[in-house]
């Protein structure tokens, strides 16, 4: 299982664009890879974990600082 780290900048995008970008990015990643998504729409804090749950990916952490949200995902 690979364990490469990738980043996705979805700042200033409104939902569902951060989810769509996350979905499209993960399509090209391998199980074990980690994706760090940064965004500013607070809706992403609900929607990205929801999308991960239904597709079986793991959310390792979520963090909000100065309106910037960071979500760390492990692809499964």
């Amino acid at each position: 299982m690979s364990e490469n780290h990738f980043e996705l900048d979805a700042r200033r995008m409104l939902c569902p664009m951060p989810v769509i970008k996350t979905q499209d990015r993960i399509k090209n990643l391998d199980p074990g890879d980690r994706l760090k998504v940064t965004c500013t729409d607070p809706g992403a804090l609900i929607d990205i974990p929801s999308w991960c749950r239904i597709h079986g990916h793991a959310v390792l952490s979520t963090n909000t600082k100065d309106r910037i949200i960071t979500i760390m995902i492990m692809v499964r």
Binding site: P16, V19, Q23, D41, I46, S50, W51
Partner: peptide, 19 residues
């Protein structure tokens, strides 16, 4: 602030693809 389509997919127990 949830996305209702994602929420519905979770309730029904299906994958959802947003295009």
């Amino acid at each position: 602030k949830r996305n209702n389509a994602l929420w519905v997919a979770e309730q029904v127990g299906i994958k959802l693809h947003i295009i």
